[in-house]
Design a protein around this nucleic acid. Structure first.
Lengths: 137, 137
DNA sequence: GTCTGTGCAAATTGTTTGCACGCAA
DNA sequence: TTGCGTGCAAACAATTTGCACAGAC
């Protein structure tokens, strides 16, 4: 009855993993998280489904951090923060990109703007505090 | 006398190539551009210097487009546009990120914000026009 | 002599792909 | 029987790295 029978078990698990996480996981970490529950999961499957989801617009690529691609199951436009020290990617829902920027970009590029990503980089709270206390010690 | 004697010939050439280009080249394309003038240039050298420049803050990484990293010799903050069709990366100097966003991000992340990148994706003028005329034909 | 920049080629690593199998319709 | 999702392992491509040498000081 339900279309998500046995046939889509892994696909659903991967999507669910992405949509329920705010860590913006990499393919590798999705695999690591799912592997215990689904022992016969293969990396190829993770990558294949990830690319499928991207095509379908269910998932987007946030950034490539230290050579590995990070994904986001939340496709509503929002701002990201990347910690250069620990590699964490977090959402900054408090920061908003005004529509006027989009309009300006459309005018400036002369073509069609489809999406917009604002990303801040720096030190996250944990790494910042650790660094401060380490240096002052 | 000048420190940039023979010893820094390739390093200088790579940096110059980046700073004079607005195409946000990849390591590969820097190599391709320089190779005719400097036949004994090696990819390893390009990558090594690129990483050095990044550390020194002379150059920044703009984005990873289709799996290849793109660099920018212009480190003044500015907005980018990436064409999903041809992979071109261009500057949008007309669009500006206000300082209030930076402040908001600093507050929201709780750590330290070091840089900010606003990137639009879509179709550049050429690809957009080509697509339009192709479809309406 | 020492230090730094580099060529070269091998190694590493993230990602993709071909093939064969198994379940669902 | 046909089609799709998948495991597995090989293939790929971008990037990094170890080693040895050459020129600068």
């Amino acid at each position: 009855m339900a279309p998500s029978a046995k046939h889509f078990k892994k696909r659903d698990a991967i999507l669910h993993c992405l949509q329920c996480s705010t860590a913006h996981p990499s393919a590798e970490s999705i695999y690591a998280q799912l592997k215990p529950q689904i022992p016969d999961l293969a990396m190829g499957t993770v990558y294949r489904n990830l690319n499928l989801f991207k095509e379908q617009g269910l998932v987007m690529s946030v950034a490539t951090v230290r050579g590995v691609e990070r994904y986001d199951g939340n496709t509503c436009p929002h701002v990201h923060f990347i910690c250069t020290h620990c590699g964490a990617v977090t959402d900054l829902h408090e920061v908003q990109v005004g529509p006027e920027l989009n309009a300006a970009a459309t005018g400036a590029c002369g073509g069609r703007v489809e999406s917009c990503q604002l990303t801040f980089t720096g030190l996250c709270r944990e790494c910042y505090q650790r660094k401060e206390s380490g240096e002052s010690a």
